[in-house]
Design a protein around this nucleic acid. Structure first.
Lengths: 165, 165
DNA sequence: TAAAATTGGTTTCAAATGTAACCACTGCAG
DNA sequence: CTGCAGTGGTTACATTTGAAACCAATTTTA
């Protein structure tokens, strides 16, 4: 017990868990709703999965990255990146070119086709985001930004230092 | 185009998507980090998956629900509920009793064992939540609550009224 | 009161995902 | 140089997940 509870555990009136107020639960529901909606928008229009779209989003801004760089940037799994990359390659959305200075490494870039799709998706993505944000006041947006940052820090700490207790 | 943009689309300086600032992305990363950490805590201690734990959380507060009721309460998938229920049943954490007034329906409840586990997990769950919340000031908690509510409303609207555009 | 349509719940099948093993290459220690 | 630890990336396999088909019981409706 990390909190200093002055009451004996057993006799304290048991306050049940209100799932609908439980932050991890709410985050999960919210995130799933949002992701699913957007995934559907990408998917039906461009046959892109979310990981694939993320890869494109990064490559659109930072050319000449390797898969490993992408892993670092996105915090996504190695394998997920590999699969996304090879599917994007198959669709001719990105190019892989061998790095002469390290023949294990592949330098990735959007192809012309890839960039076209990218240019079309960015506004779509921003539209979704704007739509979400439009329900918030400027102050709230600011607050949300900083709150997410803090929560992320805490959750990150779990992963690094191990779980609570 | 729903916003009134006074500039010609093509000539506006293209502002790329900053994935690390893109709300849907950040929500997803945050939610996954949190869920995974907690899932691990439940899983290693009680062999509970997240859906299973959610079912218990609801049943702990509202006895005598059916699977369909759970679907409604949690917004989880029918199949996920079915699987969680049958695994919980197998572990003797919940009981299924046939509803005489409708023989398709099964009335679910925590068993004694189930309730014991429930009573032990609730504090654990709350500890995680407290730990997250401890990084926020009281005002921020309040803000977060209302912000989530608003975002949820917007995302909900997508599901109901169909996607943007 | 006999179809037809609905509802509660499970099963089946395919696709998505994660873990671990794996190859190919690099770089460094001896 | 050779050996071998570490890195970039893919493959294989087991597990999870979701969609749709499905069965059984119930309600509707004609």
């Amino acid at each position: 017990m990390t909190t200093d509870n002055h009451f004996a555990q057993e006799t304290v009136p048991r306050d049940d868990l209100l799932l609908e107020k439980f932050l991890p639960y709410r985050l999960s529901v919210l995130s799933n709703r949002v992701s699913n909606a957007i995934a559907q928008a990408y998917g039906t229009r461009f046959e892109l999965t979310i990981p694939a779209w993320r890869v494109m989003a990064i490559l659109g801004r930072f050319p000449d990255l390797s898969a490993a760089d992408l892993v670092e940037q996105t915090a996504m799994d190695k394998v997920a990146i590999s699969r996304a990359v090879s599917s994007l390659f198959k669709n001719d959305y990105i190019s892989r070119s061998e790095d002469p200075s390290d023949r294990r490494r592949q330098v990735l870039n959007l192809t012309e086709l890839g960039r076209e799709v990218y240019e079309r998706i960015v506004p779509l993505a921003q539209q979704y985001e704007n739509d979400l944000m439009s329900s918030l006041s400027p102050e709230e947006r600011q607050q949300l930004d900083s709150i997410i940052e803090k929560l992320m820090g805490r959750a990150q700490a779990w992963a690094e230092r191990g779980l609570i207790d």
